[in-house]
Write a protein that binds this DNA or RNA. Sequence first.
DNA 1: AGCTTACGCTACGCTACGGTATCGTATCGC
DNA 2: GCGATACGATACCGTAGCGTAGCGTAAGCT
Lengths: 198, 198
Amino acid sequence: MAGPLSAPTEPGLDPRVARSRATVLRAAAALLIEQGAAGVTIEGIAERSGVAKTTIYRHWKSRSQLVFDAFESMLPSMPAQDYGPTLRGQLCGILNQLSRGLTQSEWAPAVPPLIDAGDRDPELRQLVQAFLVVRMERCREALRGAMARGELRRDLDVDVAIGVLAGPVFYRRLVSREPLSEAFVAEVVDQFLRSGAP
Amino acid sequence: MAGPLSAPTEPGLDPRVARSRATVLRAAAALLIEQGAAGVTIEGIAERSGVAKTTIYRHWKSRSQLVFDAFESMLPSMPAQDYGPTLRGQLCGILNQLSRGLTQSEWAPAVPPLIDAGDRDPELRQLVQAFLVVRMERCREALRGAMARGELRRDLDVDVAIGVLAGPVFYRRLVSREPLSEAFVAEVVDQFLRSGAP
DNA sequence: AGCTTACGCTACGCTACGGTATCGTATCGC
DNA sequence: GCGATACGATACCGTAGCGTAGCGTAAGCT
């Protein structure tokens, strides 16, 4: 499960192979960001990366495999950040990070194509799920902690709550395309907290 | 603004032209639904519709124009439905209709490609916006009415509220892909109402 | 009926891309 | 240094799709 880019895949590997793989994946990710899933072509990657097409086919047996790996390579690691002791601060922190990730991060432009592709490709769908699970795990923890401390109603459905919290952020990014400010996040969190009081 | 499919475009038009246009747009919409935006090709439409490729080019000067019209032709009309007098009933009705539209309607599979395409194509983006404005106008009305009646806090930001309501529905459809039940919608609405009490 | 016009059909040329084969060369491990 | 091997370059073949041209035919209008 080690990221094929950051970690040098395997220790006893020919450095030439590692270099090629990394270069190709970088170019593929760049194309993915700039032109969407349809823009990721073998020839385009070859031209952009300087790695010969034949070499690409030596490492990936098909285009879809490569696209898959490109997606995977750009899943950013989640920095274990401390958002403070209060539930409100934690939720605001998590949602603000999500919001920044969806709008300002380098992989932000890849989100819509990823969602589109996930609707048709089961493998990619799983990848997206995994990505989200990691992202939202901290949110789930924060909610569970608050419920245990009695700061939230005990009968709260955590999955629904996550949808209520993250949904508006995704909605603004993907659907309404209104600006995603910290004030908006704070408003969403405050509404949620008002509704979730025990 | 008349839909090019349902309404016979213009009265004094050669019926052969009207037929061709309608047939082509139907096929384009079908391809859009089945294979996403990338699947809408002139040749594919020609084959599927039985309309000759040359004829298609007689009516649309470029592929993107045709894709645009195909999108437009499938924007369903919003039936002016009555959801009863209570705010809760209205919101549940609107969100359930949205939820059904996003998952069960014929155009449901076209939503992710539409969102993806809208991220890159400004014209399509406007189309999506127009679609949403129509959809959400009734929601906005319901909220304004409730605020006027004193059922909601006066200082509620309507745009934020719409995001809080519609966001979770889109989130389940596009991101988490959890099932979209009426119970979920009711839970979202109830949480919103608890948080918006005056 | 006769004229107009839209249509279907076939055939093109062009580009982009997928995927494979061959061969000479550069790089790596030992 | 030397053999193994990964790489780059080029040349292919096949497919899909865009967009155009020319021509015969059929449908519509009057």
